[in-house]
Simulated scan of single mutants.
Amino acid sequence: MTSMNVARRAGEIDRDYYRRTGIFPMMHTIVIRRELLRDHPGLAHGVFHAFSQAKDAAAERYRQSRRLYQVQTMIPWMNALVDCNGEEFPEDWWPYGIAANRAALNTCLRYHHQQGLTSRQWRIEDVFAAESLDT
């Protein structure tokens, strides 16, 4: 199978999973040491808001420069791909925060336990800073 076919098939599998579950896998998480959270109340919220603002600025910059052949990437057919994704996904493809990712987080924690990576089924409240639970 060619790399193009592998990439296409992977995209089809990802889209099918999203259609069936409503879950689009997260790209990253942010980890902050417990000592820092203890010593700096509000740090988790501050970091969350800083990353959210950066993501929103990047998305807006892309939307503003979407004129044909003026995007900031060298990927052929990027605008067509963005249009296609826009029809299938919500406007914010990678939402930040617990609320927007609750289903994906619970699924990840369930898989961790089912696959023997954790000795018990962890809850979101067990692994995320209390002050971030309202994000």
Rank of each mutant, 00 (worst) to 15 (best):
81 L>W: 02
87 E>Q: 14
60 E>L: 15
45 H>D: 08
7 A>M: 12
61 R>F: 11
53 Q>S: 14
80 A>Q: 14
31 V>D: 03
18 Y>G: 01
85 N>W: 06
55 K>F: 05
87 E>P: 01
19 R>V: 12
86 G>S: 14
81 L>P: 00
87 E>A: 11
29 T>Q: 09
80 A>D: 15
82 V>C: 04
64 Q>S: 10
11 G>H: 04
9 R>D: 12
8 R>E: 07
78 M>D: 07
88 E>Y: 04
52 S>P: 00
28 H>Y: 15
11 G>Q: 09
21 T>K: 03
44 A>Y: 00
27 M>A: 14
78 M>S: 05
91 E>I: 02
57 A>C: 04
68 L>D: 06
35 E>Q: 14
71 V>R: 03
76 P>Q: 06
27 M>K: 12
44 A>Q: 02
50 A>C: 10
61 R>C: 04
30 I>R: 07
62 Y>M: 10
39 D>T: 05
74 M>L: 15
61 R>T: 11
67 R>V: 12
26 M>A: 15
9 R>E: 12
19 R>H: 11
89 F>C: 03
88 E>Q: 10
36 L>H: 09
56 D>V: 03
52 S>W: 05
34 R>W: 05
11 G>C: 04
36 L>P: 00
56 D>R: 14
84 C>Q: 10
57 A>P: 01
84 C>P: 00
93 W>T: 08
77 W>L: 13
67 R>G: 13
52 S>I: 00
23 I>N: 01
20 R>T: 08
84 C>L: 14
94 W>G: 01
56 D>K: 13
40 H>N: 15
41 P>S: 06
5 N>G: 05
30 I>H: 04
19 R>K: 14
69 Y>R: 12
37 L>A: 03
73 T>V: 15
31 V>M: 10
35 E>G: 01
21 T>E: 03
86 G>Q: 06
9 R>Y: 09
35 E>R: 14
44 A>K: 00
6 V>P: 00
62 Y>G: 00
68 L>H: 08
66 R>H: 02
78 M>P: 01
72 Q>K: 12
96 Y>H: 07
95 P>G: 04
24 F>E: 04
87 E>I: 07
69 Y>D: 13
6 V>A: 13
20 R>A: 15
25 P>S: 09
10 A>I: 10
72 Q>A: 15
52 S>E: 15
49 H>D: 15
86 G>N: 13
8 R>S: 08
74 M>E: 12
30 I>A: 12
49 H>V: 12
32 I>Y: 03
85 N>F: 08
84 C>D: 11
8 R>C: 08
73 T>H: 09
85 N>K: 09
36 L>R: 09
